[in-house]
């Protein structure tokens, strides 16, 4: 892995520096009451998230709906402004004079879940892919040539597809166009926000394989957001599990799947449909909906649904505890000093 990293001329910190380093990211929605609008409750969408992405790795972010996965992605992309926290890209703070938002966005791009809504229905496929380079000053001819190269690269023959409109191609083809569009600025970090979730299983597999090929060929780093655990295991080097705007557990994929440290992760894994009919899931591993992020539970946010709950859980909020290697768990069970009887 380490030999391939130094290839990118934009690389500053070398292999030792993390590509993305996020500290104390917070985003609360609502709460501001104007003269004519009533005061809303605060939704704690992202509430103090720390994580990093090493160069050339794929981090998978999983969790239920509303856990803050997509908000985290949008915060990283600077689509919405964080209330607190800092985002470092290759050692430089995003938005600082050394790395303004515009040059950061040349190096980080995003693919959205809804392949149709993320394409302008009035632009042809080639115009969509050529738009980014044109904005950054490429000539019309150069932008079109690179658009055709990229379309070819994502498996869409330019002769057949370049002149088409989004409604004239299938969902899988549209998502390939979105990937080509995201790659048109030659980014180093690609955020895939549920990018394959809306596709058929067979098409999904093709697109995932395409993503693996592209990652190898262009030396990309992926932040892969999904709720599909099979997909995340297939794609990711490391996995981060989120629950109600917080990181529940983060670690290497194999560690997370083999020895999950957080009861929530264990429940998620138990809810995975098994390929083996003899190992059918008999009882629901998790009951109820996630609590309301407007008024999250005290202490550990998972404690009302947790099977291993103890007295300490509703009082003290667990911090991320190093459970060995790169494996961090935000659960009192993992920390022998926490006072949890099971620890």
């Amino acid at each position: 892995m380490s030999e391939t990293i130094a290839l990118d001329p934009r690389d500053r910190g070398g292999a030792g520096t993390r590509l993305l380093d996020v500290h104390g990211l917070v985003k609360h929605f609502g709460g501001k009451g104007g003269v004519l609008t009533k005061k809303n409750d605060v939704v704690r969408a992202v509430d103090g998230v720390d994580f990093f992405i090493a160069k050339n790795e794929t981090i998978g972010i999983v969790g239920e709906s509303g856990c803050g996965k997509s908000t985290t992605a949008r915060l990283v992309m600077q689509i919405i402004q964080p209330d607190a926290g800092e985002i470092l890209f290759d050692g430089e703070e995003v938005g600082s004079p050394a790395l303004d938002v515009r040059s950061f966005r040349r190096q980080a791009q995003m693919v959205f879940q809804d392949s149709y809504a993320s394409l302008n229905p009035r632009l042809t496929v080639e115009d969509t892919v050529a738009f980014g380079p044109r904005v950054h000053g490429a000539s019309a001819k150069a932008a079109m040539t690179s658009a055709h190269d990229l379309l070819h690269r994502v498996g869409l023959e330019p002769r057949r597809f370049a002149g088409r409109y989004p409604h004239e191609i299938s969902g899988g083809q549209r998502q390939r166009v979105n990937i080509a569009r995201a790659l048109s600025l030659q980014p180093r970090l690609l955020i895939l926000d549920e990018a394959v979730s809306a596709l058929d299983k067979s098409v999904e597999a093709q697109v995932l394989n395409l993503l693996l090929d592209l990652k190898r060929d262009f030396g990309l780093t992926y932040m892969f957001i999904t709720h599909d655990l099979h997909v995340v295991r297939f794609m990711s080097d490391r996995i981060m599990v989120m629950y109600l705007g917080k990181v529940a557990e983060v670690g290497p994929s194999d560690r997370i799947f083999d020895t999950p440290g957080h009861p929530y992760t264990a429940a998620l894994l138990a809810s995975m449909p098994s390929m083996d009919p003899a190992r059918r899931t008999e009882e629901a591993p998790l009951s109820g909906d996630p609590p309301n992020p407007i008024n999250p539970p005290s202490g550990c946010r998972f404690h009302p649904r947790c099977k291993m709950v103890a007295a300490v859980c509703s009082v003290v909020e667990p911090a991320l505890f190093n459970a060995g290697g790169d494996h961090f768990v935000a659960c009192h069970l993992a920390n022998p000093a926490s006072g949890h009887p099971g620890a």
Partner: peptide, 13 residues
């Protein structure tokens, strides 16, 4: 819509 957001993150004014 997402395509406007996508245009914004590609750096367009």
């Amino acid at each position: 819509r997402d395509f406007v957001e996508a245009a914004r993150i590609s750096g367009a004014g």
